[in-house]
Simulated scan of single mutants.
Amino acid sequence: MNNEIEFLETVCERMQQLGLVQSKADFSARMLGKGQSYLTSMSARDRKVPDEVIAHLAGQLQDGIAHDDAALAGLHEEATRHERDRKHRADMLEWVSRHRTTESVRDEPRQRLSSIPLSLREKLSSWLARGRMVMP
């Protein structure tokens, strides 16, 4: 068997192990730009692989790298956007928490007053209105 066929079969096998192609047929069609039985038939006949086939394989690998680079750049932008949004949400949550704490401290006298029975509250209100008692 000639060296180029063995090389292509090794490349095909490795790409299958990595999940980049599914089979020899997939490799032949997508990576070599030939029919699905190309690698098998070339191997059986012990034929020489044309330079164009190796060049096509190199081009497909380069195109795959370029595609992956573009996908990674998009994912990086998305990750950066999610990190920024997460930080903004955390800042807003902290702001809301501080606001709630401030509001509960501010509302505390009203809450204490609302827990006093109505008749007593009315008396206290009238005393306050006449200036006889000072609210703590």
Rank of each mutant, 00 (worst) to 15 (best):
M1P: 03
N2D: 08
N3A: 14
N3D: 13
N3M: 11
I5S: 03
I5Q: 04
E6R: 14
T10I: 08
T10W: 03
R14E: 10
R14C: 01
M15G: 04
M15T: 01
Q16A: 04
Q16D: 00
Q17A: 09
L18A: 11
G19K: 01
G19R: 01
L20P: 02
V21T: 07
S23P: 03
D26V: 01
S28E: 02
S28Q: 00
A29G: 02
A29E: 10
A29T: 07
R30H: 08
R30Y: 07
R30G: 01
L32E: 00
G33E: 01
G35H: 04
G35T: 14
M42P: 04
M42I: 03
R45P: 01
D46W: 02
V49W: 02
V49E: 00
P50Q: 06
P50Y: 00
D51N: 08
E52N: 05
V53S: 03
I54L: 15
H56V: 09
L57G: 02
A58Q: 14
L61Y: 05
L61A: 09
L61W: 01
Q62R: 14
Q62G: 08
I65V: 14
I65Q: 12
I65N: 01
I65A: 10
D68H: 11
D69N: 11
A70K: 09
A70Q: 12
A71F: 06
L72T: 09
L72G: 02
L72Y: 07
G74S: 08
L75V: 06
H76W: 06
H76L: 11
T80E: 13
E83K: 14
R84N: 13
R84W: 05
R84L: 11
D85E: 15
K87I: 10
K87L: 15
R89F: 13
A90K: 08
A90G: 02
D91K: 09
M92Y: 11
L93A: 10
L93F: 06
E94K: 09
V96A: 11
R98N: 11
E103R: 07
S104V: 07
D107H: 08
E108A: 15
P109Q: 05
P109H: 06
Q111C: 10
R112S: 11
L113Y: 13
S114F: 10
L118G: 04
L118C: 05
S119P: 04
S119N: 15
L120C: 07
K123L: 13
K123C: 06
S126W: 07
S126F: 05
L128S: 09
V134E: 12
M135R: 12
P136G: 05
P136K: 04
P136M: 04
